[in-house]
Design a protein around this nucleic acid. Structure first.
Lengths: 329, 329
DNA sequence: CAGAGCTTTGTAATCGATTACATCGAGGGG
DNA sequence: CCCCTCGATGTAATCGATTACAAAGCTCTG
């Protein structure tokens, strides 16, 4: 592959001049520029990004570590992140943590080794020392969706409290009284928050949230299945199951279907995170929708701001309830 | 951030020795190695992958350019690719082409600039000159799922002919006679192949495939909606709609639902590419499933083989039909 | 017309690693 | 006891770009 030297030779100038043309430095005579450009075209020269990065100490690359690519919410997020990053001249390297702290650390380490300019993370757990170190040592970093307490890192996220309250009101209006939740891992903020929001909303309506009605999930389908099985085995099973993410809702549907029960007649179902498929499930699932596109775009803007030395602020967007038929009419 | 020089100073050796320890070169005395390792730990040193790549001319990174991240088939593929790559010591950079040739080229260019060691592509169109050049100029490259004719690049893909034939047999047995297909873009191999397979199977059963029963889709949901609308507006609408991918099937369901028609009573529906949600749609969708995990793993193995100088062979796996209820009982 | 000042270009250092080659010291054979 | 060999380590070139500084050419002015 042709290098800058080949271009310089071909154009009869020095490498410095070629470099200046490439970075459109003003002090290059027009005809020299033309000769260089012709040589570049003739040799199909493309600057080596690796060499450039080494010298300039910037890669124009952002790292994105997400909890689970198979979760449609996160792939939508990844997509909007990439779109916005591209618009700002950055590439994105995605790392899939699969909800595993060790994999998360693996990706953070690899990304740091590659000297990405900034890191976008949706942490799987609460306290990866590696990540905390990175944050403290000044790596530009922004949390998205989930975050870690007591770290000075901006957070771009959705506040679901109002929507959860709305959901509970909806359920209450439909005469449902025994409401259960499949929670996410306690190590994640979203895992805890959604339960908290649910609990406060229930209290507001004078409803209890017994321990048996809090299922321990890990944001993946299998755990939704297991938690649902446990609920349904109870002497007094809940009337509604609220899954804290869409994959656990999928698992819940699996289990309900396996037991030949009907939604919403036997159990009602609702989920956090709306996805296109919920419109077509049997029945369509009532869900709380996050503004995923805005979330990704805002996160990238905040991160690039940080990279450019501006102080980034945390952003909180609102979720909204989408009522369908899975909780009754 | 600490560099190799800092480590050398701290350990009282030269950078060469540090490098040797890091790449575990045999000729380093045990106690020297220990001193270096202590220094590495003390300074929390991590080698700069950018510098290393420049010198060694390898990035231990694979590029993966896929047609659409929002398509669950491709995100599953991406996931298995990443898993296998990680197992072999490679990172993966994913580029999402969004079914747009210009975006595809953008990603190929960026990946090439970054000097990735190899490229995995599921081409959106038939003839990006950039990609053809790259292939010819020796960039290790493997096509996955889709491919381009007349290029000397190994292909790892699924052959759906048998499964499509099985599907048609199933439909025929259910007394369906008017079968339509929503095709993918003619520029893609999968776009054409699936129609061809469908057509031959129909012929085998003595059924026609009128032009009006071939919908022009682009593998995205909207086009499925439009093609379905066109079918249903026909004087003699089809009894079955076979969507050549899952997103177009989603679009078809949208349109059918919007017209208050029922699947399979009013129209039957089948799709290429199975996804977890098809089990829970109303009704569950009959689909042709690809062995996605194997596909990704085989593609990575072939690519890494190429990188290591071994000759890679094309791999063809078989798809299988998963019968559910969307075509009748 | 000399020299100041500006524009344009070139020379060479640099980024942080790897690695060919040089060097040094110890041990062994004659 | 000398020299050769081999193991361990260091010195410095190198990868392909960017960029500070030097230098050359040109214009313009007094």
């Amino acid at each position: 592959m042709a290098g800058i030297k080949d271009v310089a030779r071909q154009a009869g100038v020095s490498v410095a001049t070629v470099s200046r043309v490439l970075n459109d430095h003003p002090s290059v005579r027009a005809d020299t520029r033309d000769r260089v450009l012709t040589a570049v075209a003739a040799l199909r020269y493309r600057p080596n990004a690796v060499a450039r990065s080494l010298r300039t100490d910037q890669t124009r690359t952002l790292g994105l570590v997400i909890s689970d690519v198979l979760n449609p919410f996160f792939t939508e997020l990844a997509r909007s992140v990439e779109d916005q990053a591209r618009a700002l001249g950055y590439s994105v390297i995605i790392g899939n943590a699969d909800e595993r702290p060790d994999l998360q650390d693996h990706h953070v380490r690899t990304l740091l080794d590659r000297r990405i300019d900034g890191l976008l993370v949706s942490p799987t757990d609460g306290g990866s020392p590696l990540m905390l170190d990175a944050a403290r040592s000044g790596t530009p970093m922004v949390f998205v969706d989930r975050w870690i307490k007591d770290v000075d890192v901006p957070v771009v996220r959705t506040d679901g409290r109002a929507a959860v309250r709305e959901l509970v009101a909806h359920l209450h209006a439909l005469e449902h009284r025994r409401l259960a939740i499949i929670a996410g891992p306690a190590a994640t903020t979203t895992g805890r928050e959604r339960v908290d929001a649910f609990r406060s909303a229930l209290r507001e309506f004078g409803l209890p949230l017994p321990a048996a009605y809090i299922g321990r999930g890990d944001f993946q389908a299998d755990s939704g299945r297991r938690a649902t099985a446990a609920f349904l085995d109870l002497d007094e099973p809940p009337a509604v199951i609220f899954a804290a993410d869409n994959l656990m809702a999928l698992g819940a549907m699996d289990e309900i279907r396996a037991r030949k029960l009907r939604v919403p007649d036997d159990v009602a179902l609702a989920a956090f995170d709306d996805i296109p498929w919920f419109m077509h499930t049997d029945p369509p699932v009532t869900a709380i929708a996050q503004p995923t596109g805005d979330l990704g775009a805002a996160a990238v803007r905040a991160l690039v701001g940080l990279i450019d030395g501006r102080a980034a602020e945390s952003v909180t967007l609102a979720a909204r309830l989408v009522v369908r038929r899975s909780c009754g009419e």
